[in-house]
């Protein structure tokens, strides 16, 4: 019988070859962000389902080094190490996000069009407030920006735009973070283990909810 396998630790991504060329381009030059992910196709309608995949296996990752740095910093602010579980960077979430925004599918391409300009915006905002890109800010500075994005009503239209990016980025991060066994522990998913019997919710849960198990043994 199979047993649950442990999560794959993603190797640190090699800098993609084409990045060498892309790096020469001025990254503040917006049009370079507008280009869509490499014109690869997806995994098709008959992929090998039992293989273990790492980001980059099916389509190339496309985030630039500065974009990845900003992504790591922001993802760790959203998912820091705490009593619930490890930080996003310990789970290599940047690779998941890079895979997501580099995917050839329509939903992911739409997210790409939000995330790439969003990362760019975040660095511009950091530069104009603190004269450093987001990844080089200290925690208080990062928090200052993010608190503005999380305000009930962002103060300016520019911040409102940043807030939309922030929520979308967070949703993508959540998808990746909670798909790992560490994420399961953080959210309280228990399962994916074979067992000879299924006893239903534990008595303490039934008691708390005032429920009775109506399917009796037998």
């Amino acid at each position: 019988m199979d047993t649950p396998t442990s999560p794959t630790r993603l190797p640190r991504r090699k800098v993609l070859q084409w990045f060498a060329a892309a790096a020469a381009i001025d990254l503040t030059d917006l049009p370079s962000f507008a280009q869509s992910a490499s014109a690869t196709t997806g995994y098709g309608t008959d992929p090998d389902l039992t293989k273990v995949y790492s980001p980059g296996d099916v389509w190339s990752l496309t985030l630039s080094d500065p974009e990845r740095k900003t992504t790591v910093a922001l993802a760790d602010l959203i998912f820091p190490a705490d009593e619930f579980g490890p930080a996003a960077s310990e789970l290599h979430l940047v690779d998941f996000i890079d895979e997501w925004v580099s995917a050839p599918y329509p939903n992911q391409q739409r997210d790409r069009d939000v995330v790439l300009p969003g990362l760019q915006w975040l660095d511009e905002e950091s530069n104009s407030r603190f004269q450093k890109p987001f990844s080089r800010l200290d925690e208080a500075q990062r928090t200052a920006i993010c608190d503005d994005l999380c305000a009930e009503r962002p103060a300016t239209p520019d911040l409102a735009k940043g807030a939309r990016f922030f929520e979308r980025f967070k949703a993508i991060c959540s998808g990746g973070y909670y798909s790992t066994p560490e994420g399961w522990a953080a959210i309280g998913y228990v399962g994916n283990v074979a067992s000879g019997i299924f006893t239903g919710p534990p008595q303490e849960v039934l008691d708390q909810l005032g429920l009775e198990q109506t399917v009796k043994d037998g």
Partner: peptide, 15 residues
């Protein structure tokens, strides 16, 4: 297999 072992966490795609 866990979501983390699949592309895009195993979420749905047109494929």
């Amino acid at each position: 297999q866990t979501g983390a072992q699949a592309p895009l966490g195993g979420s749905s795609t047109p494929d």
